[in-house]
C-alpha cells in the first residue's frame, strides 16, 4: 500500500522532530507541577491535578498538531523533497491523506505517552484514576482530527507561521462558535443573524469536544453525545482534507 509508505514516513519524520520531543517533555513537566500547587488547592487536590493533566494533554497535543502539521506539506514543497515522491505512481491526494494520517499517528502516540504519564502521576499521588477520564482524552484526540486537517489545509498554500496563526485563531474561535450563534440570535439585524449562522456552520465547533469539567466532576455524559461529536470530527475533517487535496492537485511545482 503506497499510502502506508507516506503515513509511516510522516510518522518517522515527526517523531524525529525536536519540536515533538520538546513539547512532550514540557507537557509531562506541567502535569508533575500539579503536585507543587497542591497546597493551593484547598482540599480539591484530586480535581486540580486531573484538570491540569487533561488540559495539558489537550493543549500540548494541539501545539504538536499546529506546529508540526503546519510545516508538514510546506516543508516538502520548500525543500523540494516532494519532487521525488509525487513523480512516483502515487496520486497527489494519496500524498495529502498519507501526511494527514501520519500526523494523526504521531498525535495518537503523543497522547498515549502523555496519558500514561498522567495516570502514573495520579497513581503516585494516590488519586483515584477512573477510566472515565479517558473519555475526555478520546474527544481531545478527535478534536485533533479537526485541528490537524485545518493545519494541513493551510500548509498546502501558506507559510508555516501564517498557517500556525490562522490555525490557532480557528482553534480559539472554534471554542466560541456557540456564543457566536447566541450573539447572532440576540441581534436585531438580519444580516448579522445570517452571518453568525454561516460562521457557526462553517467554522469548527470545538466546544463539544471539551468534556474535561464533566469527567473531573464525575458528571455522566450521554453516549450519543460522544458518538455525535466523533462523527462531527470525522465529517468535518474529511471535508477539510478533501479541500486540501483539491488545492494540492491544482498546484504547479
Amino acid at each position: 500500500m503506497k499510502i502506508i509508505g507516506v503515513i509511516l514516513n510522516t510518522f518517522r519524520e515527526s517523531i524525529r522532530d525536536k519540536v515533538f520531543i520538546t513539547i512532550i517533555i514540557f507537557a509531562i513537566l506541567v502535569m508533575v507541577s500539579g503536585k507543587v500547587i497542591q497546597p493551593l488547592a484547598l482540599g480539591e487536590e484530586a480535581k486540580v491535578v486531573k484538570d491540569i493533566g487533561l488540559n495539558s494533554i489537550a493543549l500540548f497535543s494541539t501545539l504538536i498538531a499546529i506546529l508540526v502539521g503546519g510545516r508538514l506539506v510546506y516543508k516538502e514543497i520548500e525543500k523540494r523533497t516532494l519532487y521525488l515522491i509525487i513523480t512516483r505512481p502515487i496520486h497527489r491526494w494519496q500524498f495529502i491523506v498519507g501526511k494527514y494520517f501520519g500526523l494523526l499517528l504521531v498525535l495518537f502516540e503523543s497522547i498515549l505517552i502523555m496519558t500514561c504519564a498522567f495516570y502514573l502521576i495520579l497513581i503516585l499521588l494516590n488519586i483515584s484514576a477512573s477510566l472515565n477520564l479517558l473519555l475526555s482524552v478520546l474527544l481531545t484526540f478527535f478534536q485533533l482530527w479537526v485541528i490537524t486537517a485545518i493545519a494541513i489545509l493551510f500548509s498546502t498554500f501558506s507559510t508555516p507561521i501564517t498557517g500556525a496563526v490562522f490555525t490557532f485563531a480557528l482553534y480559539f474561535i472554534g471554542h466560541l462558535t456557540r456564543d457566536l450563534k447566541t450573539f447572532g440570535a440576540m441581534s436585531k439585524s438580519g444580516l448579522v443573524k445570517t452571518l453568525s449562522d454561516i460562521m457557526y456552520y462553517v467554522l469548527p465547533n470545538l466546544a463539544n469536544f471539551n468534556i474535561k469539567g464533566e469527567v473531573v466532576h464525575n458528571v455522566t455524559i450521554a453516549p450519543q453525545i460522544i458518538v455525535l461529536t466523533i462523527a462531527y470530527a470525522i465529517v468535518y475533517s474529511a471535508i477539510i482534507v478533501f479541500a486540501s487535496c483539491i488545492i494540492f492537485q491544482r498546484k504547479d511545482f
Binding site: N9, R16, R80, T81, Y83, L84
Partner: peptide
C-alpha cells in the same frame, strides 16, 4: 531533479 533534496533524517 537538479540538486535533489532528500529526507535528511533517513
Amino acid at each position: 531533479p537538479e540538486s535533489p533534496y532528500f529526507y535528511e533524517y533517513l
